[in-house]
Design a protein around this nucleic acid. Structure first.
Lengths: 187, 187
DNA sequence: TAATTCATGTAAAAGGTTACATGATTAA
DNA sequence: TTAATCATGTAACCTTTTACATGAATTA
């Protein structure tokens, strides 16, 4: 149809939201109410299963505000300007619905370290080992970061525990695989 | 500079390649030499750490061919037309370099199931449980698929083992968390 | 005084998916 | 005959990143 309007253009109609939008709303609901703080929080507690850049977060918050799901206001504290958001009733409703609907959650993984490891010729032991150690290093770094957290609530501690386990398992696998690769070419 | 040419426009110059391009080249090197087969292979063996759609793979192969890194030819077998690729000397060189360079490998994770779980209010036990079970179901499905593989080479078996372990760990965590959530609200 | 942190944002580009279109072959 | 598998591709769209720009406050 030529005169058809997209959802976003139909005034008053619901805007379509992706997981990142709901993430932002839930963060705001929990008191993490600025773009900057949302980013910090993600980096700290969610790095092993979620991420977002400022370039995504800030426009997302603005969009949510324009849609009436978040309310933003400017706050100046000790000379510092920031934009604080709160969840509107409409936003809360929207968020609750999404959290309750049993839609198939997307799973989207890209681990370049593992990809490399799959692609290298393992006959070339030293090359395989090099890529393996890089993967180990990255996993160990992440493990350290995730393990250092002290989440205030049970929920956070549980999720942290999963991250720790998955990362530990990866590090262990790297070590075992390294050992299985045999001694260095010239020992 | 106004008259400056981008890398891709400078004739004979190297095209910039992302991990997906190297993935394709390595697959072709290993005899997985059509777009269709690359996709199948990824789905089967790499689903827990890598994925790509046809909409990405086919143009990527064409691009690589145009850059002289892959050579493609049309093959008709029992009436079926397909495009088979082989790795050129230039492609092999490029791939080897990438595999050997110690660039920080990217890590890109988005597990919506876990995100939901982080965002739901755990006070609402039933809602938390619902999301938890959905995550468990997805992980168990994937575990089954990955576990069913019988990779021909040691390399593949090793990587499979990692997938199995990570997925098993996730399923176990789901069960433990479910139990920790306590008995159903009305038992 | 210099570097880091707090804080927000934009524009352009990259990277990727979805939906669609096509058509032959093979298995049920 | 119908459904599934094999097989390739495009166009529109969307999400997300990167790089940049700005500036005040705080810490070293």
């Amino acid at each position: 149809m030529p005169g058809e309007l997209k959802t976003a253009e139909r005034p008053g109609a619901e805007v379509e939201l992706g997981p990142s939008a709901y993430m932002a709303m839930a963060m705001v609901r929990d008191g993490i109410n600025t773009g900057y703080r949302i980013k910090q929080m993600l980096e700290r507690v969610a790095s092993f299963f979620w991420s977002a850049s400022y370039g995504q977060i800030y426009p997302e918050l603005r969009k949510l505000e324009a849609a009436g799901l978040l309310a933003g206001r400017e706050v100046t504290e000790s000379g510092r300007l920031r934009r604080e958001y709160s969840l509107t009733a409409a936003g809360e409703k929207r968020l609750r619905t999404w959290l309750a609907e049993p839609a198939e959650p997307s799973l989207w993984l890209r681990n370049e370290g593992l990809l490399r490891l799959m692609l290298v010729d393992w006959e070339d032991r030293e090359l395989a080992r090099k890529n393996l150690r890089e993967l180990r290093r990255m996993s160990a770094d992440r493990l350290e970061a995730v393990g250092a957290l002290v989440p205030p609530r049970e929920r956070g501690r549980r999720i942290q525990a999963l991250g720790v386990r998955l990362l530990e398992e990866t590090v262990r696998w790297c070590d075992e695989t390294d050992a299985a690769l045999g001694p260095p070419d010239e020992a």
